[in-house]
């Protein structure tokens, strides 16, 4: 069996067929991961910037911890969120386990350290250059953070895209907190895991190629927007 021929055949068949169930899965993947990225970004960017421009006891320890959390396995995040959201857990009353909302929470937590750590580094580098100037203008830490984040917005896009990539590619967390329920919490990665389980390797890899294509399209879109905005502001 020429596996790779079959894989590409399967991928094109999937795209050509425009299968409704597949579209639902793709749409859910995008919805969950984009929501997670947006929620995480709103919190992690200011957090990272604050870490860069402020000085307080234990700051270095916090920076190292956030950097270390980059190595956080998705399955561990999934398990922790599962235990929190389980009916027997502290947040069980919300009843959101095995729903897309739980998957958003898990992915948002998973990518928080990534956005925070990279944003902190970017802001810290800029801060070294502009700290003097900001202080002379009388800007406090909040104003400085916001000004630097605004200044760095084009680099931050890359960070956010990296976070999106990690979110949409992970399978360990969404499998546990979503449960891979057909039509409800099945996303691209859990569908790939399921087809692998069934031994339908061409279909699994075909889905993988579709996922890759979607991420690529999104990146192309983000790149074009960024280029246009950059030209506009130049």
């Amino acid at each position: 069996m020429s596996t790779f021929g079959a894989v590409f055949g399967e991928a094109f068949r999937l795209i050509g067929a425009l299968d409704l169930a597949l579209l639902d899965i793709v749409w859910l993947s995008l919805r969950v991961s984009l929501s997670a990225v947006l929620i995480s970004t709103v919190v992690a960017l200011p957090f990272g910037a604050a870490l860069a421009v402020t000085r307080f006891p234990g700051r270095d320890a916090l920076v190292v911890t956030v950097n270390a959390l980059l190595g956080l396995p998705a399955v561990v995040v999934g398990l922790a969120i599962y235990l929190l959201l389980s009916r027997a857990g502290p947040l069980g009353t919300f009843g959101i386990l095995f729903t897309p909302a739980a998957m958003v929470v898990a992915q948002a937590v998973l990518i928080f350290p990534l956005i925070a750590a990279l944003a902190r580094q970017a802001v810290a580098d800029a801060w070294r250059e502009y700290a003097e100037q900001m202080r002379s203008l009388g800007a406090g830490p909040v104003a400085s953070s916001l000004a630097l984040l605004h200044d760095l917005r084009f680099s931050l896009v890359t960070i956010v895209l990296a976070a999106f990539g990690r979110a949409i590619a992970e399978v360990g967390a969404v499998m546990i907190v979503g449960g891979n329920i057909d039509g409800v919490t099945r996303v691209m990665t859990t569908a790939i895991a399921l087809e692998t389980s069934k031994g339908d390797l061409p279909l699994a890899l075909g889905l993988g190629i579709v996922l890759l294509g979607i991420v690529l399209l999104l990146n192309v879109g983000a790149h074009l927007l960024k280029e246009r905005a950059q030209r506009h502001h130049a």
Partner: peptide
Amino acid sequence: AFLATALALGAQAQEKSIVVASTTSTEQ
């Protein structure tokens, strides 16, 4: 951002449903 969040959180249709924990053998 708000739109996407609303999409994600508001997407759970209010239909009658139950969760059945079952085995891979029945599903797969």
